[in-house]
């Protein structure tokens, strides 16, 4: 498996084709393609401070999902909502937040047998007015991302449609990098991350096993 550095170099090498999709990396041979049944999302988390994240939440809401706004800190969301919900049973969530928020939720979710199954890092280059999406997740989902986000400046809305299609059944992670023009370059931060955290294994503390790892623990392997 390529290291994160190697992967970024790969992406850099492909940047000779500007503002274009760089293609979905194929799943390893022998893996069955994942089911198309989507993961039921308990909540979609967004950071109220950032336009891309608000657009993401707006589209999620339009799609009928329940949204939760944070201001960077996930404490209230965790303490008043998710912890209570997850004590009953694991429930998938998705979001477009800072990395700090994902880091906390990923660590907390692990105790309930959940892992980060889709992750996309969104790197905003203000000077160039473009955004780079470095994504890892199930192959079918990344094909959807390629379709929904290719060349989209309003990428937050497309991303909301992507996470709602995250498959419920486990699948190996593959990689995709897209580059597009960006809007709100003056208000969005240089780095945001979108993600899906979903159940895996028995609904209990530290449950695990299987072919796919948490993409937060694996961040160095991008």
């Amino acid at each position: 498996m390529a290291s994160r550095r190697e992967f970024l170099q790969l992406a850099l090498a492909a940047s000779a084709v500007p503002l274009a999709a760089r293609g979905v990396l194929a799943a390893p041979a022998g893996w069955a393609d994942e089911s198309t049944a989507p993961t039921p999302l308990y909540a979609v988390v967004f950071d109220e401070r950032y336009p891309a994240s608000r657009a993401f939440a707006g589209e999620a809401k339009r799609l009928g999902l329940s949204t939760r706004g944070i201001g960077g800190d996930v404490t209230r969301l965790w303490f008043d909502d998710l912890d209570r919900r997850w004590r009953q049973e694991p429930a998938a969530i998705a979001g477009l937040t800072t990395y700090g928020a994902l880091f906390c939720l990923d660590v907390l979710a692990r105790d309930y047998g959940m892992r980060t199954r889709f992750r996309a890092d969104h790197y905003l280059d203000r000077a160039a007015g473009r955004v780079e999406h470095v994504m890892a997740g199930p192959a079918a989902l990344l094909r959807d991302a390629d379709t929904l986000m290719r060349g989209q400046a309003a990428w937050g809305r497309g991303l909301a449609r992507v996470v709602t299609r995250h498959p419920a059944s486990p699948a190996p992670a593959t990689r995709l990098t897209l580059v597009a023009r960006a809007e709100h370059t003056g208000e969005d931060p240089a780095h945001l991350v979108s993600w899906v955290i979903s159940p895996w294994g028995p609904p209990a503390w530290a449950a695990g096993g299987g072919p796919e790892s948490s993409l937060v623990g694996e961040r160095a392997k991008f």
């Binding site: 960077g72 700090g100 991350v193």
Partner: peptide, 12 residues
């Protein structure tokens, strides 16, 4: 957990 929202962990 506010420290994490204030840049305690950064992945930029």
């Amino acid at each position: 957990l506010a420290a994490f929202g204030q840049g305690f962990v950064r992945d930029g």
